[in-house]
């Protein structure tokens, strides 16, 4: 009896060591901005999911491609049909690590800027990316944001010569998580 009790105690202790402070958001906002000679294009997506593990310093995003809303519905159709091929590749994802996550204290007000690196998977192509994650805690409410610069050609997204002056070579992607909730 004593032995079982002891085992359970050890297991609980062990689990406690590995128990993580995980935070998530189901309505992370992902926007992209393309500034080119003849046209500025932007689209917004509020259906991304994000999970951050504040102990292990791991972070993941999942972004449904069809969730991107354009002001111009024809552009939206071309984005899905011709460029991102969302039937074939319905989601974009980011898997990354935040090595200095220890510097972030989500229970204390402040702005924490930490480097983040990982892999961005989009249109069936994976590429390493590095950026800065910004965690903001204001009156106990945690939010986060990050910015990526993406080149469509790196993800095998071909821009036809005819519209080359309408789509930027580098597209700015902004991720904003309004509220990080603890799991």
């Amino acid at each position: 009896m004593k032995r079982i009790f002891f085992s359970v105690a050890v297991i609980l202790a062990a689990n406690h060591c590995f128990a993580q402070a995980r935070y998530f958001s189901k309505d992370a906002a992902v926007s992209f901005y393309s500034k080119a000679l003849f046209e500025n294009i932007e689209a917004h997506n509020k259906t991304a999911i994000c999970v951050v593990d504040m102990t292990g310093g791991k972070i993941e995003f999942s972004v449904p491609i069809k969730g991107f809303q354009f002001e111009n519905s024809l552009m939206q159709e071309h984005f899905n049909e011709n460029y991102l091929e969302s039937d074939k590749y319905p989601k974009a994802a980011f898997k990354g690590t935040i090595p200095s996550v220890g510097n972030v204290n989500l229970s204390k007000d402040g702005v924490y800027k930490v480097p983040m690196s990982g892999t961005l998977i989009m249109h069936g192509v994976s590429n390493p990316v590095t950026t800065e994650a910004v965690f903001t805690v204001k009156e106990g409410v945690a939010s986060a944001s990050a910015e990526f610069i993406i080149k469509p050609e790196d993800y095998n997204i071909k821009i036809p010569a005819l519209v080359r002056d309408k789509v930027a070579k580098s597209v700015r992607v902004v991720v904003e998580i309004p509220l990080l909730k603890k799991i």
Partner: peptide
Amino acid sequence: KLIPSIFLSLACCQLV
């Protein structure tokens, strides 16, 4: 008594 406990907890960690 300790050995099985440690073993168990390790297994648990593995699972995690």
